[in-house]
Amino acid sequence: MNFLFTPRPGPQVWLWVLGATILFGALLAFLHTLPGRQKKLLIVVSTFLAGLFYFLEFMIPTTVGGGPEGNFLSGGVEPLADFVLVIGMMALGLGIINLARVQGRILLRMRAGWQNAFIFFVGLIGMTVIGIMHDVYPAETSVWTPLYNFFFTGLYTPLASTTFALLAFFIASAAFRAFRITSVESTLMMITAFIVMLGTVGSEVVTGWIPETSPFAILKLDNITLWIMTTVNMSAQRALLFGIAMGELAIALRVWLSLERGHFFEQEV
């Protein structure tokens, strides 16, 4: 198995890529020829086997036929993760085709916003070329390095940071609505938020005069804040997490045993 997943040096890698492409192309063509029932059976069996592998890998003790890091199945985890990664990369190609189809139609028919579609294609093609060339010629003196730095570090990164910075304004407007006192619950939330905010930034000013050794030290705002965050807030968060964990376990079982397939794969389309 490891033979298949060992990185290949030099031009040999291209032969492997070509071989894998032909193999998977043939496999996909074969799968397309299968009748619906057999396709469904294949999905059920492969889902079960993949799930069984991870289930057993987790459940079998590390003392069974493995090294200090795992059992006899643990060696397969990394190659399988690589396999999933490769499938994911193929899906990325599908995503790009979808984007190009949607934007291409807008551009060709000169619909409203065609300028955005044009910029999309310039960005997609330009950044793909620059990114690949930067990887091929990574030297600082290469012409591709400043281009890559300009478009990725100089353009994309600040744009993403600007979008992130918008959060500050959105938090302010959302908080304004959330803290309006309209019910008992919102009043409680307002008071709690006020204490936590004050305890985080202004505790020393308001209750700093209470000595730590005093029996009233529990009334210091930072201590009240700590109690709210570690006792009230944490217990609520953990209660949520328990519910979420049970939900995830249930859906994982349904998917693994194909009890849920009606939602995704049962109907022929």
Binding site: I244, G247, I251
Partner: peptide
């Protein structure tokens, strides 16, 4: 955040 900004929010196990 979603509770503050949305009309209805489904949380925890309700999601599942």
């Amino acid at each position: 955040f979603l509770i503050a900004a949305c009309d209805y929010t489904i949380i925890g196990e309700e999601y599942y």
